[in-house]
Nucleic acid binder design. Sequence first.
DNA 1: ATAAACCTTGGAGTCGACTTCAAGGCAAGT
DNA 2: ACTTGCCTTGAAGTCGACTCCAAGGTTTAT
Lengths: 125, 125
Amino acid sequence: MKIKEVSAKFNISADTLRYWEREGAIPPVSRDKAGYRDYDDEDLDWITFAKCMREAGVSIEYLIEYLTLFKQGDTTLQARKDLLGEQLETIAQRLHEIQHTYDLIKEKTEHYEAHVEGYHGKLSQ
Amino acid sequence: MKIKEVSAKFNISADTLRYWEREGAIPPVSRDKAGYRDYDDEDLDWITFAKCMREAGVSIEYLIEYLTLFKQGDTTLQARKDLLGEQLETIAQRLHEIQHTYDLIKEKTEHYEAHVEGYHGKLSQ
DNA sequence: ATAAACCTTGGAGTCGACTTCAAGGCAAGT
DNA sequence: ACTTGCCTTGAAGTCGACTCCAAGGTTTAT
């Protein structure tokens, strides 16, 4: 799979895909005879993972750290688990913050609902 | 309330508080005779709001837009409600993304749990 | 065989959100 | 009066995460 297709499939710019790879947030993608990136299923799995993590606000640095451990093999299983656990904590916290804000805005919009109606009422009387 | 206290209370740097005000993400704070910022309850409410929103990933630009409408008075009630509704949408989406990532990592850590145990098992036998 | 549409790399540029700096004013304690 | 600590402003600097650019190679269609 070439970079443009991957870009379309994940809705991530080709530049970003190259950037992630350059930085070491995903493993190096193998190239075809022309020197073009040719993504295999494993590469796509890494992109899925990276995309999820980035969407949840996890930094590139963390991804690099995780991949670095991963490349070092089985002896880093515990370290990787710890790293993920740490992220899980952070994400859970973020989740609650956002939930909190969601509730606040929800309430605020309902408040507005009442006010705007009141305002319309005034206008129509 | 002086800037340092506010900074401590909200755990937001004084620089950031000044930055938000300068940008128009919160209303101008009145000054005492010395020219120092003196935050009143309303100011604190705005900071609470801004902090919540920022934590949920809402941009400074949005806050400026909201405050701009707010300053224009009651005629912008509907516009403000719309703006908040829009944000609510975005935040709900973000919430789901993060929830999704949370589940994924949770699963992954459990997976690791098994593997690490397996690994320990191998070692201890 | 030539153009159009891909791809490559290295490096520079951008953007949002701070953060730091420089130069200086006020204020409370000794 | 002097030091220490907090405050002010405007401007410049930083940082993370892209995003764009230049120069050039490949592939596909005409």
